[in-house]
Amino acid sequence: MQVGDRIGRRHSRFHTTEPFFSITSAALQFTSPHTIRDKGAGLGAFDVGNKIGIKGGPNNARILTIKNKNPSELLVDETVADSSDEVVTVINFS
């Protein structure tokens, strides 16, 4: 029996609504002030209200909150720096 099976239902730290996931791409484009675009339309798995982390490029180590979305574009609450054609990873935290 795994710990999560035995006590997971009673402890909030084992509760998650979505698994963590990430995408890594050179097709991501950050456009100031609040837009992230993906030419490959790979942003559909992210949801409004999700916190995402950025790894790589001028927005490295930023935590952003998704305000609006469609499969090829995310609008975030925070301001982003312009960048494109760089390998960047977007990590979903919540």
Results as ranks from 00 to 15, higher is better:
5 D>A: 09
60 N>R: 06
32 S>C: 12
63 I>V: 13
94 S>E: 07
94 S>R: 07
11 H>Y: 10
72 S>Y: 08
60 N>F: 00
43 L>K: 05
94 S>T: 14
84 S>W: 08
27 A>R: 07
18 E>R: 15
94 S>P: 07
23 I>V: 05
90 V>C: 07
41 A>P: 02
31 T>S: 05
87 V>T: 14
88 V>H: 01
40 G>E: 14
4 G>D: 15
31 T>L: 07
6 R>C: 08
41 A>K: 11
43 L>F: 05
20 F>W: 10
28 L>V: 04
28 L>S: 06
39 K>G: 10
21 F>W: 13
87 V>C: 05
79 T>R: 12
49 G>N: 04
17 T>Y: 12
1 M>T: 12
59 N>Q: 00
53 G>K: 06
16 T>M: 11
80 V>K: 06
32 S>T: 14
78 E>M: 02
85 D>S: 07
21 F>S: 13
22 S>K: 08
58 P>C: 03
87 V>G: 02
82 D>A: 01
75 L>K: 11
65 T>F: 09
72 S>H: 10
38 D>Y: 07
44 G>F: 02
82 D>Y: 04
70 N>I: 06
22 S>E: 10
51 K>M: 12
73 E>H: 08
4 G>T: 13
59 N>G: 00
64 L>M: 04
59 N>D: 00
73 E>K: 08
5 D>F: 09
32 S>V: 10
